[in-house]
Design a protein around this nucleic acid. Structure first.
Lengths: 234, 234
DNA sequence: ACCTGCACACTTGTTAGACAATATTCAGGA
DNA sequence: TCCTGAATATTGTCTAACAAGTGTGCAGGT
């Protein structure tokens, strides 16, 4: 009796609620700083309070929600400092990955496919770009086959998505330019030029970071975080 | 009224139990594959079952415990494949960090102090080396000032500690050699030679990984994981 | 007008007990 | 021997409740 290739998904209620909250946060239905009271959510989902409590605690561990002792959980309001940290971390992880891929001349097919999808987008569709862009970067990480690296990068990307829902309407993404830069990165990997690929990715993510910070700052977000930038690149 | 520099620590029972379990796992009191039944732990800690349940779920999220649906949680048994993944991930994160530090010629004082502590150890004290060694590597990561990078690396190091309790008695660590390699890494950072520092760290962690895998394999650990190695370094 | 202190409502932390669903174990039969 | 099925153990979830902490608003005094 050979098992089917599609794995059976035994999912608990807590998993389901956490997943639903995630998608609702990514879709922008749950905006930053919105309070998520346990009793309210318990009635809304028709489950007991401990159940939603577990789901909330899981999302807090992921960094998507924030809460203090005896305080109600809120959707994480990622300020400029947090966005800076997230994108710098992305650069740290992914640039090293590019060096390793370049050593092996390994260009993941999934990355090529995702970037081709970006190339087919017209210039006027900013939001549709997010998903294939995430797939592009994730496929590079996944290509090295490290479960932990993939998990860490996915965690960073979930925070990115949380920011993105606030700037979805802004046309700050240029599909053509991004497509070209992605292709250049893949070319450098294929040529074994790890240093150049890492440097280009640094610029690529650095510009995205600056655009995102500017977009978030323009809406007068929470300036509570220390605005001190991380290490400067020469 | 300026707040004191030491932050107030409001800790819940769940936090305390999770912390206690962590230290007991690191100390080797809780060995690999040891089952942690919720009811047993509830009576042992004199708390209700949901409380220990929350603590268990937190440790599962950290990767220190593993559990399936309706199955009792067990201390993670990190096999050769997991150790390989952990150390490769460490190398990915830390080598990129070394490049950034080298660009700024930034040698963290804490790293110097930790390595000096290693230097003062005699050759015959293997277990005392673990703590300052961890401090050395953590201080390098912390020096870039990224909360997320620090958190991710700390997560990896907690898994390392989980392995270490199984090979504590083995004298597979040579303080003199490790001290010398650490000092060489710091020298390369001070000289701005990021590539060389990253390469040396790769060797440093690579050898530690091989020794650890050999030590774990010698005790006939769970060979369940796929033994396929990750990307080879040329 | 401003600050202090207190009572109140709201929310979370934790407990107790219970039932359902699933895993594991072990005994019995083909 | 191997498979089947019941009994046990353990977890998932719920209900109800109390304890403890946070924040708010109001009264009172300076």
């Amino acid at each position: 009796m050979t098992p089917s290739s599609i794995p059976v998904t035994a999912t608990s209620i807590v998993d389901a609620i956490a997943a639903d909250l995630r998608t609702r946060m990514f879709s922008g239905e749950l905006t930053a700083d919105m309070p998520l009271t346990e009793t309210d959510m318990a009635t809304a989902y028709n489950v007991a309070r401990p159940t939603v409590k577990a789901a909330i605690e899981r999302l807090v561990a992921e960094g998507l929600l924030v809460r203090g002792l005896h305080k109600t959980a809120r959707v994480a309001a990622l300020g400029p400092a947090a966005v800076s940290d997230i994108y710098h971390s992305r650069a740290y992880l992914e640039s090293e990955i590019l060096r390793r891929l370049a050593l092996m001349r390994l260009v993941p097919a999934e990355a090529v496919a995702a970037n081709a999808e970006i190339g087919r987008l017209s210039e006027g569709t900013p939001t549709d770009l997010i998903e294939p862009d995430i797939r592009f970067h994730l496929s590079l990480i996944d290509a090295v086959g490290s479960d932990r690296m993939s998990k860490m990068y996915r965690s960073l990307m979930s925070e990115v998505r949380l920011c993105m829902n606030r700037v979805q309407s802004l046309g700050l993404l240029a599909p053509g330019l991004i497509h070209a830069e992605h292709e250049q990165i893949l070319r450098l990997i294929a040529a074994g030029k790890g240093d150049a690929a890492a440097a280009l990715l640094d610029d690529h993510l650095g510009r995205a970071r600056e655009r995102l910070i500017k977009a978030l700052g323009g809406e007068a977000g929470p300036q509570a975080d220390a605005p001190t930038d991380l290490l400067a690149r020469p």
